[in-house]
Design a protein around this nucleic acid. Structure first.
Length: 564
RNA sequence: GACUUGCUAGCUCAGCUGGUAGAGCACAUCCCUUUUAAGGAUGGGGUCCAGGGUUCGAACCCCUGGCAAGUCACCA
């Protein structure tokens, strides 16, 4: 069953047909020899120079025998001037009168040849002397207009439509395109930074038999040939460390991770993370490395280490502040965790109106305390360091205090942007930590880590002292493009599927069943038989006609209903 | 998962106390040779998210469901 077409869609299909009838192929297969672009023309304007450009027709201002139009290519828009007698110098004016004025629509791809010139108002334009149809658009684009002051009218702004039909969003909202261009540049700048130091970009499995390296619920899938359960990775940490065991000096991966958890404006089920591991380094070195990386990336991509984000100015100029987590808690709550037992700490948390329960250990309490009372204070990039050992099962114990670890998180605008460790390379300690996690999992924590025996085996062969760091790329891009929603920095954020094909409603089914017995029946009799109320009958019979399932016909003054 | 808000023409949105569904842009026909949110005249276009209920009558009231956004909860 085909979709009902709107009036505008029907007209465009008719235009498509007419183009073919007059010998114009609406979808030609040939290469179109573009030699300029909207931006190259504006940047290197030469009066009278011939150019060949292509793009979408985005607006038309027809004034009888001459017209202005806007062409949008990958870089932006440029104005076209079409003069009937220049475009059609002979007797046949059909390219202008028929093709351009009648059969083309906004959104169609066209190629043009013409001369650069400036209009009386001074706008750089192209005077068209040849026009080629490159691809006809059958659906109308939303029309977004911008006036001389940059004020936007009728913006295509509904988030649902924008995310579901990102292609449309990209065509009509230039800012959206900018965000994704920046995203690509950010990743390139990071890659350059790592490659300059001779770290190796690697790829590790997405389908993993044991989902390790983080505490999160995985997606589960099944491999038929192996007849085994596999998981989509929640992190790539354990694989990258295996490569350090294998002898690489530094490895990094821009990885898609998958977590089967809630979705909101900062969480998408699949997201991108950069993880990097460098041998013979510790977390102090990694802090300096991270600072330099972010200063370098912001300067290269934005031209400045200062980033405007939601009215705040965030400065990524190195060095960043460094605050041990217990100091942060003391500063913002007055609680000196080091002096308190677990129960005393739990009481303190209750006093501070933090929700706690008896299953929470000291680490979890500290985490809550920090998350609720401290995190939001760190707007400027700040390294929070030395987390409790229970929270960090893959991190080496602190060289001065075995209850803590050599870990830092980078907070920006109160949110975690990066996470790093001096990696745990003692295989016996690592196995014990995994076993601790197993106990948590037996207590019902469905996010506690699995024991990865092969990873332990790798560590038993020896891993050099190593520091590793991960950055949430989506969140970084959000900061650097001033977006508060992760959906704005993903081309295709996860959405619930759109509605399925229409099924028959109850009333429609009732009528259809009756009709199937007779094939053709008088309308009043059918209505009587159906036993439906007026409204149900009306909706039912109208629905069936609309779905082209039945037809109502007049025969000898009788209304007959027939199955089609 | 809970709560709040929204869903009306291709797009952006009105639609009063329940009484024949509106505007701007877009579209169609006509006029217009340097315009620019071009202009002028005329016209067409609707599953009012879906289903059910109340009612003489529902875009509007009630119930159920769908999708989305925001807030909260959960969660790296």
């Amino acid at each position: 069953m085909s979709r009902a077409l709107s009036e505008q869609e029907q007209l465009r299909r008719e235009s498509l047909q007419k183009l073919r009838e007059i010998g114009v192929n609406p979808y030609p297969a040939y290469l179109f020899p573009v030699d300029a672009s909207s931006s190259s023309i504006k940047e290197n304007y030469v009066e009278g120079k011939e150019v060949v450009i292509a793009g979408r027709l985005m607006s038309r201002r027809i004034m009888g025998k001459a017209s202005f139009a806007e062409l949008q290519d990958a870089e932006g828009k440029i104005q076209l001037y079409l003069n009937r007698d220049e475009l059609c110098p002979g007797e046949d004016k059909s390219t202008y009168n028929e093709v351009f004025k009648k059969l083309l629509d906004i959104g169609d791809f066209i190629g043009i040849e013409g001369k650069q010139f400036k209009t009386q108002v001074g706008e750089i334009s192209v005077d068209v002397n040849k026009l080629t149809v490159l691809s006809k658009a059958l659906r109308p684009l939303p029309i977004v207009k911008t006036d001389a002051d940059g004020k936007v009218y009728d913006a295509f702004a509904d988030p649902e439509q924008r995310y579901r039909q990102r292609y449309v969003d990209l065509v009509v909202n230039p800012k959206v395109k900018d965000t994704f261009i920046k995203r690509s540049r950010i990743i390139n700048a990071m890659r350059d930074f790592f490659n300059q130091q001779d770290y190796l970009e690697v790829e590790t499995p997405i389908l993993q038999p044991i989902p390790g390296g983080a505490a999160a619920r995985p997606f589960i899938t099944h491999h038929n040939a192996l007849n085994t359960q596999l998981y989509l990775r929640i992190a790539n940490e354990l694989y990258l460390k295996r490569l350090i065991v294998g002898g690489f000096n530094g490895v990094y991966e821009f990885a898609k991770d998958f977590r089967n958890e809630g979705m909101d404006r900062t969480h998408n089920p699949e997201f991108t993370v950069l993880e990097i591991y460098v041998a013979y380094k510790d977390y102090n070195w990694m802090m300096e490395f991270t600072e330099q990386l972010l200063e370098d990336v912001t300067s290269k991509v934005l031209g400045s280490s200062e980033v405007k984000f939601q009215g705040e100015v965030i400065n990524f100029k190195a060095p960043f502040a460094r605050v041990p987590i217990l100091d942060a808690i003391k500063t913002h709550t007055g609680v000196d965790v080091a002096l308190l037992s677990e129960n005393q700490l739990r009481e303190k948390c209750k006093e501070l109106q933090i929700e706690v329960d008896d299953t929470m250990g000291k680490a979890k309490l500290i985490d809550e305390l920090f998350g609720e009372k401290c995190e939001m204070h760190y707007k400027q990039p700040t390294f929070i360091t030395d987390y409790p050992v229970e929270m960090s099962p893959l991190c080496k114990k602190h060289r001065e205090n075995p209850e803590l670890t050599e870990r830092f998180e980078l907070l920006v605008n109160g949110k975690e942007l990066a996470n790093a460790y001096t990696e745990l390379n003692d295989p016996i300690d690592q196995l014990e930590r995994f076993q601790e996690q197993l106990k948590l999992s037996e207590k019902g924590d469905d996010e506690a880590m699995f024991i990865d025996q092969d990873f332990i085996r790798a560590l038993e062969y020896g891993m050099p002292p190593t520091s590793g760091m991960g950055i949430g790329i989506d969140r970084l891009v959000m900061f650097l493009t001033n977006n508060t929603s992760i959906q704005e920095v993903l081309f295709f954020p996860q959405m619930r599927p759109e509605k399925k094909a229409v099924e028959l409603s109850e009333s429609e089914k009732t009528i259809f069943e009756l009709l199937k017995q007779e094939n053709s029946i008088e309308l009043p009799i059918l209505k009587e038989k159906s036993g439906l109320s007026n409204k149900q009958w009306d909706k039912g019979i109208k629905g069936l006609s609309k779905h082209s399932v039945v037809k109502v016909e007049k025969e000898d003054d009788k209304l007959m209903v027939k199955i089609i």
